[in-house]
């Protein structure tokens, strides 16, 4: 198939960006979206134009590195990561607009690459269980009911890609935050720091410039791992409990 691509080009963080139009030909429906961009980059390189910078690493949908706004949708039309999106989801002659994640907390580095360092700093604020190496009890010492273990796992599936932020009209990271809070709150090991954790993480989230949650639900719709919106309910519940406790 032949496609017209409108792609965001921006030379650096302080440069003005613009959408530029490119054509690609003979794209196979079995290609992944990023392989289609590889083909374009080879074309550009041959023509002497600097290739388009975009992030990707594992290309199997688990590392969370890739992420593009594709015709206005985070990760494009399917519920998956950009690297796992295949060209069979598009049709011949289509015009596709490709932009980076848009959020104040994710500044553009170059072209389609953004800085998601804010996520690391939110985890640093409290997204862990404090246990030094070597001090753990036997793994079977604390049984975890399967229901809790399963919900913890579901929340822990978050790959930290940032699609939730990109999709949210408020550029809120509450789905990301809620998934980490829920993962650790569902486990007995996460209880001792549960209340302190949620407060510190929410404070960091706000300090990074992410917006607030207004229950739009676009985050969960865009999430390639299908993290349900109710992790935000758990987050809010824990935050209320923690703040009451501190009064």
């Amino acid at each position: 198939m032949n496609l017209t691509l409108r792609i965001w080009r921006q030379a650096g963080p302080r440069h003005q960006g613009e959408l530029r139009t490119y054509k690609v030909k003979d794209i196979s429906p079995d290609m992944s979206f990023l392989e289609m961009l590889d083909v374009l980059n080879e074309q550009l390189n041959a023509a002497g134009e600097e290739p388009i910078a975009f992030d990707s690493d594992c290309r199997e949908g688990i590392c969370g590195t890739c992420g593009l706004m594709i015709s206005g949708e985070a990760h494009g039309p399917e519920k998956t990561t950009t690297c796992q999106l295949h060209m069979r989801s598009f049709s011949d002659g289509e015009v596709i607009t490709i932009e980076p994640w848009r959020a104040n907390a994710f500044p553009v580095i170059k072209d389609l690459v953004v800085d998601r360092g804010a996520f690391d700093r939110i985890i640093q604020a409290g997204g862990y269980i404090s246990v030094n190496t070597g001090s753990a009890p036997d793994a079977h010492a604390t049984p975890v009911p399967k229901r809790n273990a399963d919900r913890a796992f579901q929340a822990a599936e978050c790959i930290q890609c940032g699609a939730c932020v990109a999709a949210c009209p408020n550029a809120s990271a509450m789905l990301f935050l809620g998934s980490k809070v829920t993962h650790l709150a569902e486990l007995p090991q996460g209880q001792p720091e549960r209340m302190a954790r949620v407060v510190k993480m929410v404070d960091q989230h706000d300090a990074e410039g992410f917006g607030g949650c207004t229950n739009v639900g676009a985050c969960s719709q865009a999430c390639p791992k299908g993290i349900p919106q109710d992790v935000i309910s758990t987050l809010n519940f824990d935050l209320r409990t923690a703040l009451r406790g501190n009064r």
Binding site: I129, A136, P137, F153, H183, L184, Q189
Partner: peptide, 16 residues
């Protein structure tokens, strides 16, 4: 042991 203490959600049986 270390991973479980960190909250790694390994698969569990119904008995926990």
């Amino acid at each position: 042991d270390q991973c479980v203490a960190q909250g790694v959600p390994f698969a569990r049986e119904y008995g926990g």
